[in-house]
């Protein structure tokens, strides 16, 4: 299509503020809204687990072990007779917190060097990118196991490992976006006005690189949750008595033939939540419109 048409179409949407336009577009994304609603509910359920959960997640009842779902125990009971629904709710806290930790670590590790690489260019860029390449050329699982082995098995250590593994993507995203934004005419205009370098970075570049970041954060929350589940399943993540969904699946695995519901419910929780993060990320990207699509 010709440029003239593109700009004609663009003009059709040009009379509302960016934020309102984003909101209006996002509101039209039914599935993304649904995903957001689910994640909010899940977060509320996790925060208020002590009030919402029907049982104490640690209360054992050895008379009623490995029961199938029933009216008293909607999700059944585990090998120690603990209520699986309550445990799933409490595990949501750990799983969500773990995902949050990993993404936060990835952001802290990835974003600043990404920005520096994108804005400094030249040798600095080269150095940072070669280090990133080196990091990415390790097999990820082995790297994670090595980090956990070095720091000791704990959920936080596992999430540090996941965060380190996710950071190169943030780094590359920030580098690319910062490079693109630095090429924009408004940055050149800021230089022509006489803005200092640090002013340009703070006022012109940072505000314009964050939107693609949000999309990636949402998607990576899902990825981190999946990674946490995998590590916890291997026993490298959440340690008893704490339990995450991945850990629940791991423990339940031993009783898979006798009582499959033990892994079905936490497994489903993982799948649905990860999916919700992905769908939300897609919805955010679509609502941000061309500002982001251009970067892809």
């Amino acid at each position: 299509m010709s440029d003239a048409t593109a700009s004609e179409f663009e003009q059709l949407g040009a009379s509302v503020s960016a934020r309102r336009r984003f909101l209006r577009r996002f509101m039209r994304q039914r599935t993304a809204l649904f995903a957001l609603g689910f994640l909010v509910l899940l977060a509320l359920g996790a925060v208020f687990a002590p009030w919402v959960a029907p049982y104490d997640p640690l209360a054992q009842n050895l008379d009623r072990v490995l029961e199938a779902p029933s009216l008293a125990h909607w999700f059944g009971t585990d090998e120690l007779g603990r209520d699986v629904l309550s445990r799933t709710l409490f595990a949501a806290r750990i799983s969500l917190l773990a995902a949050f930790q990993a993404v936060l670590i990835a952001l802290v590790i990835g974003v600043p060097p990404g920005l520096i690489a994108g804005l400094a260019g030249g040798r600095t860029d080269n150095l940072i990118m070669r280090l990133t390449d080196a990091l990415m050329s390790f097999p990820p699982l082995i790297l994670a196991v090595a980090i956990v082995a070095a720091l000791g098995p704990s959920l936080t250590n596992a999430m540090i490992a996941v965060g380190i593994l996710l950071s190169p993507t943030f780094l590359r995203l920030m580098r690319g976006t910062a490079m693109a934004v630095a090429q924009e005419t408004y940055v050149e205009a800021a230089r022509s006005i006489g803005c200092t370098q640090s002013w340009i970075i703070m006022r012109h570049i940072l505000p314009n690189v964050v939107s693609p970041l949000f999309v990636q954060i949402s998607v990576f929350a899902g990825v981190a949750m999946l990674a946490e589940a995998g590590l916890s399943f291997l026993g490298l993540g959440a340690q008893p008595p704490d339990s995450s969904w991945g850990a629940m699946v791991g423990r339940g695995f031993r009783y898979i033939s006798h009582s499959p519901s033990l892994i079905v419910f936490p497994g489903l929780a993982i799948a649905v939540t990860v999916l919700a993060f992905y769908v939300l990320g897609d919805g955010l990207r679509d609502s941000l419109g061309r500002e982001i699509r251009r970067e892809e």
Binding site: A18, T185, Y186, E188, A189, P207, E291
Partner: peptide, 14 residues
């Protein structure tokens, strides 16, 4: 200076 493209010479976030 005034630039050619009025669509890219103003910071969209300001």
């Amino acid at each position: 200076m005034v630039f050619q493209d009025p669509y890219s010479s103003l910071d969209p976030s300001m």
